[in-house]
Write a protein that binds this DNA or RNA. Structure first.
Lengths: 328, 328
DNA sequence: CTGTTAGCGCATTCAG
DNA sequence: CTGAATGCGCTAACAG
């Protein structure tokens, strides 16, 4: 900056002002400065810029549990696009569902003085995400609600979506319906199970524990569990799968099995219509979650900057829509 | 830091040293300092830290063209995991294939003084990515090679993979084979087309322009183009699709068509085995590209820090393997 | 082993 | 409208 100032024959301060579109600098001076900037290929140092106290870094942190899952990739895209629209840059970390790693990443982001953080929390206790312990850094939770901490969050209508999808099965007259899902400790998983149970109860059906399988982390695990259910003495005539991993596993197990088992699930996925079997899914847009989370976060950041951060935590729920796929 | 120093009864410099595991600080002092750090909940300001000249920010920039594509999400995961292993944090931007946006993002990253940048370039002229114009910032290209600039890069064996996959079709006796691909301006696309042409030439076949469709940006476009080919007076008996979007479009067009058209493609994708038609794909691991790119970049960064950045640009090629899927 | 000095690049504050 | 002084938080380099 000093070089530019010398080149333009002004003081560094004037260069700074010209770069800020400060109206107090005369047009002629501004032109001179900008010419020098171009001539010298000068680029403002954002690090120094954000060192100045209270300055926002215009960085937005995102911590997800598993980028390999298209769901989180889409979510990240939603965050990135909203952030970019607002002049912010996204810093991304992956926890692999490890709460320890999550803590590391969040600390790292706080140390870098990002403006705020969006977290898909890995554990069930989120007390370490309270802004009070994070130098006041605002935090928004995505996909999973806060526990032991009051935070903004964006959720999917897990209960409602599961209820609606499961109702399709009960409505079709099925009376023995199996459940496949990931770890029951995950809030989303528990909510979807609750929706499933409610649909059964509405139809006057009891949930048979024998037909319920949790802890299915990936497609092979889900496929294996689904096959087990289908080989029971009195197998379910329909399956409900609580996420796209489970649904795909179920599809693999069901395909070719006799008699054909009905299937409904949570999460849409590509090629769902090409699998040669009827399928109902509770669908929603993962990018929407990311965008909403970014919106909440940026709102909160603005409010903090205006020193009026007294709003209570917000909770946004993204709705689901039921999609039916027929046979290919 | 001053507060910690006061609390511990030492000078700020000593705190700094204790936090760095500087061996010159006595164990007793270190303990005292660390206790104060814990007591006050102190967190070092990484912004100030990296303001010091020449200091690396331990940030690694990644600029991709389309995060919504699982390919790039996996690539990002590869970068993130390698970076994290080396104590670096990833900053991610999405260009949506817009070269202007790419320039913005790269400039932004340079301004933030990241340690280096990995770019999946959107345009065909990469002269703006030369480190010389970027304050010496090292750049590694991923998935597409540099033009008008000497840069490290990581590529897929586009030619070889396409050749092998197309040979499966010619080897099966097909003599009229259609080609579906994205914009021919993309290097990957051009290379895959070259592989396709080579396979045909080996079999003594000419490439019929009528059977070649480029510019297919998404699945619907690919499906539409594939249907057009299948409705020609003398339709191809096999199709070669140059990426997973094209392949999926082709699958949609072929399914249910009579007579059944053979299909081979570039890129593996989930559920490829469940589509009820035989399919051969040239597969590879997208995360591997990200990891290799991060490795090249970190190598280069290390070399620059040791002031020995005289190595010529490296080029790493990730191999493909042929995968055959039968009928479901 | 510990402390002091100085400065990274920028922008706020106050003087011209 | 422009400039000079000052400090953000940290750490090399040099004393003690």
């Amino acid at each position: 900056m000093a070089d530019v100032a010398k080149h333009a024959g002004v003081a560094p301060m004037t260069v700074s002002r010209a770069l800020h579109d400060d109206p107090r600098v005369s047009p002629s001076t501004r032109v001179k400065v900008l010419a020098s900037v171009a001539a010298l290929g000068y680029r403002r140092n954002e690090v120094a810029r954000s060192l100045r106290a209270g300055q926002s870094s215009d960085l937005l942190g995102l911590v997800v549990t598993n980028l390999a899952n298209p769901f989180y990739a889409q979510l990240a895209l939603g965050v990135e696009s909203f952030a970019a629209e607002h002049g912010m840059t996204m810093v991304l970390g992956n926890t692999a569902e490890d709460p320890g790693r999550e803590k590391e990443l969040v600390n790292n982001l706080v140390s870098r003085r990002v403006s705020g953080i969006i977290v898909v929390p890995a554990g069930s206790d989120h007390s370490h995400l309270r802004p009070s312990g994070l130098d006041g850094m605002p935090v928004v939770l995505a996909a999973r609600p806060p526990s032991r901490a009051e935070l903004d969050c964006v959720l999917v209508d897990d209960f409602g979506g599961a209820l609606a999808a499961a109702r399709v099965l009960t409505g079709a007259g099925h009376r023995r319906i199996g459940f496949l899902g990931p770890l029951p400790g995950l809030w989303t998983s528990a909510e979807r199970f609750r929706g499933f149970c409610t649909a059964l109860a509405e139809a006057g059906l009891a949930v048979d524990e024998q037909n319920v399988r949790f802890g299915l982390r990936d497609v092979p695990a889900a496929e294996h569990a689904a096959r087990e259910l289908l080989h029971l003495a009195d197998p379910p005539t329909a399956l409900f799968a609580a996420n796209n991993r489970s649904t795909i596993g179920a599809v693999r197990a069901i395909t070719g099995a006799r008699p054909r088992t009905a299937l409904a699930g949570f999460d849409d996925f590509e090629l769902a219509d090409m699998l040669g079997l009827p399928l109902t899914v509770a669908a929603y847009d993962p990018a929407e979650i990311g965008m909403q989370a970014a919106r909440l976060l940026i709102d909160r950041i603005d409010r903090i900057e205006r020193a009026g951060n007294d709003t209570p935590p917000q909770r946004v729920v993204v709705p689901t829509t039921l999609t039916h796929y027929g046979q290919a």
